[in-house]
C-alpha cells in the first residue's frame, strides 16, 4: 500500500520544517486523517518507525487524529454524519451532498527538541 511512500513524503516535509527552524530532533508529529483520504492510520503507524529510522524523526511519536465523516445536504441544508459507503443526508435522504469533513490528509503540528541531550 502507499502508506510507506506517504511516510517518506511526510519525513521530507518534516525535515524541511526543522531545517527552516535551525536544527533539532523531532519528538512529535501530528496528522489529521479522514476516513475517505485513502490512508489507513494503522498502516501509517507501522510504516513510520521503519521509514524514520536514522532520520531526525527517529523515535518521534506519530499522533494521528482521525476526522469524522460529515456531509452538507444540498437540498435541505442539514449537516449530518455519514459512512464511507453512504454519504447521503441523514435528515432527508438526499444523495446530493457535499463532504465537509473526512477526506483530510494533513500534517498539522510537529514538536522539536532543540538538543539531542534531552533525548
Amino acid at each position: 500500500m502507499h502508506e510507506l511512500s506517504l511516510c517518506q513524503s511526510l519525513l521530507r516535509q518534516v525535515a524541511a520544517i526543522v531545517s527552516e527552524q535551525g536544527s533539532g530532533f523531532v519528538s512529535l508529529i501530528e496528522l489529521q486523517v479522514g476516513e475517505l483520504s485513502g490512508v489507513e492510520p494503522a498502516l501509517m503507524q507501522h510504516a513510520f518507525p521503519v521509514v524514520s529510522q536514522g532520520s531526525i524523526a527517529q523515535g518521534a511519536r506519530l499522533l494521528i487524529q482521525t476526522r469524522p465523516l460529515r456531509v452538507l445536504c444540498e437540498r435541505c441544508g442539514s449537516e449530518s454524519d455519514a459512512e464511507a459507503g453512504n454519504l447521503s443526508c441523514r435528515a432527508c435522504g438526499n444523495w446530493q451532498t457535499r463532504l465537509i469533513s473526512g477526506d483530510e490528509l494533513l500534517l498539522t503540528r510537529i514538536e522539536i527538541e532543540s538538543s539531542a541531550i534531552t533525548r
Partner: peptide, 22 residues
C-alpha cells in the same frame, strides 16, 4: 507558531497536505 510547550519543546503548527509534493 513557535511557542514552546511546557517541557521546553518547540511546537510548530503546519497544516500542510501530506501529498503536497505530489
Amino acid at each position: 507558531r513557535l511557542e514552546k510547550t511546557s517541557e521546553g519543546k518547540q511546537s510548530i503548527d503546519v497544516l500542510k497536505g501530506l501529498l503536497s509534493e505530489n
